[in-house]
Simulated scan of single mutants.
Amino acid sequence: MKYHYQEKIYASTLYIVPTPIGNLNDITQRALTVLSHVDLVAAEDTRYTGLLLKHFSIKNKLFMLHVHNEQQKTKLLVEKLQDGKSIALVSNAGTPLINDPGYYLVRCCREINIRVIPLPGACAAITALSASGLPSNRFCYEGFLPSKTKARRDILRNLAYESRTLIFYESPHRLIYSLHDMIKEWGSKRYIVLARELTKSWESLYGASIEKLLEWVLEDKNRYKGEIVLIVKGYVKKVDANILDSSTLRTLILLQQELPLKIASKLTAKIHGITKNTLYKYVLNQQKDDK
Rank of each mutant, 00 (worst) to 15 (best):
D39Y: 10
E219C: 11
E79S: 15
K184F: 10
I21S: 00
Q6T: 10
Q256L: 11
Q82A: 12
L105Q: 10
D45K: 08
M1W: 06
I183S: 00
T95M: 14
K288D: 14
K200I: 00
T19F: 01
A125K: 06
G234N: 09
I231C: 05
L77P: 07
S247V: 13
S178I: 00
I114M: 10
N113M: 02
W216P: 01
A93W: 05
K225Q: 14
T33Y: 02
K59T: 15
E258K: 15
L24V: 08
L129N: 05
T95Q: 08
R223T: 03
G187C: 02
L97A: 03
I183M: 15
E70Y: 03
P146D: 06
N69E: 08
V229C: 14
D154Y: 09
N23R: 03
M64H: 11
K233H: 12
D289P: 00
K238Y: 06
P146Q: 03
D181Q: 06
Y191N: 12
A264V: 09
L32R: 01
I114H: 03
R110H: 13
A208H: 13
R250H: 13
L159G: 00
F56C: 02
G234P: 08
Q82Y: 07
L175M: 09
V17L: 04
L14K: 08
E219T: 10
R164V: 00
I228Q: 04
S136T: 07
A160D: 01
K59D: 14
K61E: 15
I112A: 00
G226L: 06
P146I: 05
L284M: 15
L254V: 09
L259K: 13
L119T: 05
M1H: 13
R250C: 12
D290P: 00
L40G: 04
E142K: 13
H272R: 04
S178N: 11
Y191L: 12
P120R: 05
L14H: 09
G143H: 08
T165M: 04
L261D: 10
I274D: 10
A208Y: 04
